[in-house]
């Protein structure tokens, strides 16, 4: 079997002192997850406000609608904006697919 020289990518994976992987892909994912957690918190607030539906229908519905709108915005707009902004600014070119085993 012919031995091949290690690629820069392999160096990153096998180096004992260097990073195990680039952080480029994880940062947007963590940020999107953070936005999603915030959205879930807003959903919880919306649920809690329904407690006053019987006594203060208009106020409770307004508060719930506001929280739901904020949650929907959080789930849809912000993660997309974050992802796009990051993709543009980091300009990461993903690695080409490679064969792991020889033919």
């Amino acid at each position: 079997m012919k031995a091949t020289a290690p690629t820069p990518h392999q160096d990153l994976l096998t180096s004992s002192t260097g990073p195990l992987h680039h952080d480029d892909g994880v940062q947007p994912e963590r940020t999107v997850l953070s936005w999603n957690r915030t959205g879930v918190s807003l959903l919880l607030i919306a649920l809690l406000t329904t407690r006053w539906l019987d006594d203060h229908a208009v106020s409770a519905l307004s508060a719930a609608a506001l929280a739901l709108f904020a949650a929907a915005w959080t789930f849809s707009v912000q993660p997309a904006a974050t992802g796009v902004r990051l993709l543009v600014s980091m300009s990461t070119v993903l690695p080409q697919p490679r064969r792991m085993c020889g033919p």
Partner: peptide, 13 residues
Amino acid sequence: MAGIAQEPVPSPP
């Protein structure tokens, strides 16, 4: 080139 490469891209306005 295999691996991760960084290529500069002009920032959007």
